[in-house]
């Protein structure tokens, strides 16, 4: 009874999180088809329209408009594009870099481990948000600087987890057996160790996508991300903050969107992890 409940809970979590993420991805891909308005079209006659259930709302603007009269829902839908691109590209880049170094450090040990571990220590001494702002200031604003900044900062998260997990696996007898059978070190690392450290990597990857979305929002919020024309969730939040007293919805809807997305990424990762774990499967 208890165990049945324990196995059902993660899968409900997985489905709910997956559903929200699917919506976000569909919004990103089909933004021009789904958005009711042009996200950039300003109309001062329609400024700060409230969402549909409040008095004074207009049809065609379901979540209301911002202080320049732009449709909020359309801006959120278009904002999903930047969020999804950053989540995918930055998280995968951080994952590849960090996991590769973590595998090498954990499996080969010795001086390779010493160099990589020292590098991680130094890296983690920087406060990440400050580091990101600094990097973007150096690289210049724009989508690829944001992506590079996130990958360059967050690979350490993968590196530490993968290194620790690899060291656990490398001590197992099956690795010894693979050596006796005559497999080379790289082959053992990639085909024996890697599949066993995959579950935590997948969970982290999903978590990292959420983190990438937040970092991008923060950078947009302080105006360091994309050019201000393209709608981004962080940019909308920054604008909403300015008119919080007149029009709360401009701040609240993007915050909810951001929150649900980040939460879904982390829950999805946890759910996938237990799916991929051969012992729990």
């Amino acid at each position: 009874m208890d165990s049945a409940r324990a196995t059902r809970r993660p899968s409900a979590r997985l489905w709910l999180a997956g559903l929200w993420l699917a919506l976000v991805f569909i919004a990103a891909i089909a933004a021009p088809l789904l958005a009711p308005q042009d996200p950039l079209a300003q109309d001062l006659l329609y400024e700060r329209l409230p969402p549909f259930w409040m008095a004074g709302s207009e049809s065609g603007y379901p979540l209301g408009t911002d202080s320049l009269g732009r449709d909020l829902l359309s801006r959120l839908i278009y904002g999903a594009r930047i969020a999804v691109i950053v989540a995918l590209v930055a998280a995968f880049a951080a994952c590849l870099l960090g996991s590769a170094l973590g595998l090498i450090a954990g499996y080969f040990g010795g001086w390779a481990d010493r160099i990589i571990s020292r590098l991680v220590d130094i890296w983690m001494a920087f406060p990440p948000v400050l580091f990101a702002i600094l990097l973007v200031a150096v690289l210049g604003t724009g989508l690829h600087s944001v992506i590079i900044a996130i990958a360059v900062i967050d690979w350490t998260r993968f590196c530490r987890v993968v290194r620790a997990e690899t060291m656990v696996q490398a001590r197992m007898d099956y690795i010894e057996n693979a050596r006796i059978v005559g497999f080379g070190r790289w082959r053992i690392m990639l085909s024996e160790v890697l599949p066993n450290v995959l579950p935590p990597i997948i969970a982290l990857l999903s978590l990292e996508m959420g983190i990438a979305v937040i970092v991008e929002a923060i950078l947009s919020f302080v105006n360091l991300s994309i050019s201000t024309d393209d709608p981004t969730w962080g940019g909308i939040i920054a604008e909403g903050r300015l008119s919080i007293h007149q029009a709360w919805w401009i701040l609240v809807f993007p915050l909810i969107t951001l929150f649900l997305t980040v939460l879904s990424f982390s829950q999805f990762g946890e759910g996938l992890k237990s799916r991929f774990d051969p012992v729990l499967r």
């Binding site: 197992m172 007898d173 099956y174 010894e176 057996n177 693979a178 006796i180 599949p195 066993n196 051969p278």
Partner: peptide
């Protein structure tokens, strides 16, 4: 020419293969 029969049959097999 050689082979090993290990002590712990749990960790001597790769759990993901």
């Amino acid at each position: 020419r050689t082979a090993l029969i290990p002590q712990d049959p749990l960790t001597a097999l790769n759990p993901s293969r």
